[in-house]
Write a protein that binds this DNA or RNA. Structure first.
Length: 500
RNA sequence: GGUUUCAUGGCCGAGUGGCUAGGCAGAGCUCUGCAAAAGCUCGUACAGCGGUUCGAAUCCGCUUGAAACCUCCA
């Protein structure tokens, strides 16, 4: 079998994955800022890295997956007073800052559950690690790469760049940046434009504030990920993931801080997922074209023709390679919905099939083809998590499964081993690794099934006496409430719940 | 302005120096009381212009178009 290769953003090439500690993987992924509701764009990294997590586990690695929650609103805008995004919004909504944080954290967790994302091993919060962040800033100051101005602390990028490679991740050149960045509007305590805040002094109206050696304030944006990843994964770990838009400045700054504080490159493999676009444009707050996840599910957004279930979105995301942009459109989502239904139907059929052979000969060509399609699956995953190709092969196998059921292909035409490989492959790749899981009916399932069987029998009786008006009425009215009947070849009737 | 990336059939999207991606939509056929589902078959794409090559959509150059990052952003 092939080796796992990961496209490492820092070297701009695919590299064989070798963990620092054999058998173990430390992975850090930048999580959400819980000052608002997650939108479709946010879903991509969480789904992408969920599959990475799942696949690494499948390969037998013991994975420690850390995904943070940024609950300390902190950022600075050039030319303006530093402001606290979270406390600002909190005033608008008349909520305590932590109340707001809790609300959106809960909503986020709920969405992750809907997507069938496995929970991270550790989900640290920024506010829970203020001490670690302060300690790390102190260390950077001791080394002489940070300076304090009026209660704020800045990282000295120019000094850092003199001895280290600032731009190693993003490919940026410091000189270019110094020349090309925008005009300052008055404020600047920073020695250089490229310097970034490690700690910011809190203005009086700022609600979220903590005591520090430099007075009351709050941590800079980049420091939390460096401090928390080091605490739980060590000063160097295996994989750092996040969206492409975080590559600069966020990840570049993380690297610089961590290098000074811990003396080594913080992560060995950097993975960046590409953006979701809408009408060719990145979905983002600044463009005002976001669709929140609850809107996606409900369809309550002018850009949506209807709601799409979380699994449809997961499927939609995984049908594309994670490094490519993914263009949102209703047509594409509806295509994904149909595709998912077909794939899942085939999966359910496959799980119910049992192997039997009466000693008749195997169709060697077919048997070989099925084995090959299954055998390629790990190769695709190993090739930088090519979920799109995995999907394609599953789709190619679907007609075989359906034919096995429909009788176009007889079971004896494939060997028992091949059949078992087929069942195993679908369960493993579709369900365990891609994480596709259609919601099972709740506890009322038995009752619903009982009612449906009754209706199916009534329809059968009507058909037997050629009362098609009645049989069609039953079928059509069930369809209207979202239950599709299917007349099988053997005369039995099955049903499926239509996704909406 | 700087840095970088991308350009594939009606739509979404893989991939590769020469061999069918796949899905959705569409057409025909089979099955069926009808329908749905399912099965079979079909379109024959790779922005434009040059170049390298026996051969390029895949490599190089130019042109055009689009996007991302440089500022909070997944």
């Amino acid at each position: 079998m092939s080796e796992l290769k990961i496209y490492n953003s820092i070297h701009r090439q695919k590299e064989v994955f070798t963990p620092i500690t054999p058998g173990h993987v430390g992975m850090y992924v930048c999580g959400p800022t819980v000052s608002g509701e997650s939108h479709l764009g946010h879903a991509r990294p969480y789904i992408t890295f969920d599959v990475v997590n799942r696949y690494l586990r499948f390969l037998g690695y013991k994975v420690r997956y850390v995904r943070n929650i940024t609950d300390a609103g902190h950022f600075e805008e050039e030319g303006r007073e530093a402001e606290d995004k979270i406390s600002k919004k909190a005033i608008l909504e008349k909520l305590e800052p932590m109340e707001l944080v809790q609300k959106y954290t809960n909503l986020y967790h709920w969405a992750m559950l809907q997507f069938n994302n496995l929970e991270p091993s550790i989900e640290p919060t920024a506010t829970g690690h203020i001490i670690e962040q302060i300690e790390m800033i102190k260390k950077i100051m001791e080394k002489g790469y940070a300076y304090e101005v009026d209660g704020s602390v800045y990282f000295d990028v120019k000094k850092y760049a003199a001895s280290y490679d600032y731009g190693i991740l993003s490919g940026r050149v410091l000189e270019d940046m110094l020349e090309t960045t925008r005009e300052l509007e008055g404020q600047d305590e920073k020695r250089n434009k490229a310097d970034f805040a490690l700690w910011k002094k809190a203005p009086p109206e700022h609600i979220m504030r903590w005591p520090s050696p430099w007075g009351e304030g709050f941590p800079g944006w980049h420091i939390e990920c460096s401090a928390m990843s080091a605490k739980y994964l060590g000063s160097q770990f295996d994989i750092h993931g996040g969206g492409m838009d975080l590559q600069f400045p966020h990840h570049e700054c993380e690297i610089a801080q961590s290098e000074i504080a811990h003396g080594e490159l913080m992560a060995r493999y950097w993975m960046h997922n590409n953006m979701i676009t809408i009408n060719g444009r990145k979905m983002g707050k600044s463009y005002g074209n976001t669709i929140t996840l609850t809107e996606m599910f409900s369809g309550n957004n002018p850009q949506l023709e209807k709601g799409y279930s979380p699994m449809v979105i997961r499927f939609f995301v995984l049908q594309t390679h994670y490094r490519g942009t993914l263009d949102f459109s209703n047509e594409a989502l509806q295509a994904a919905e149909k595709g998912l239904q077909r794939l899942w139907a085939a999966y359910e059929v496959l799980q119910k099939l049992t192997y039997s052979s009466n000693g008749q000969p195997i169709n060697e060509e077919l048997d070989k083809q099925v084995r090959q399609l299954c055998a390629e699956l790990p190769d695709f995953m190993n090739d930088d998590f090519n979920t799109a190709k995995v999907m394609a092969n599953l789709f190619e196998l679907a007609p075989v499964i359906n034919s096995l059921k429909g009788g176009q292909i007889k079971m004896h035409e494939i060997s028992e081993d091949t059949f078992q490989l087929l069942q195993y492959s679908w369960k493993t790749y579709l369900v365990d690794i891609l994480g596709i899981q259609m919601e099972v009916l709740g506890t009322d399932e038995d009752k619903l099934d009982g009612v449906l069987q009754m209706l199916i029998n009534m329809r059968k009786e009507a058909k037997a006496r050629k009362d098609y008006a009645t049989s069609d009425k039953i079928r059509n009215e069930l369809l209207a409430v979202g239950i599709q009947l299917k007349d099988e070849k053997d005369g039995s009737v099955s049903y499926s719940i239509v996704q909406d």
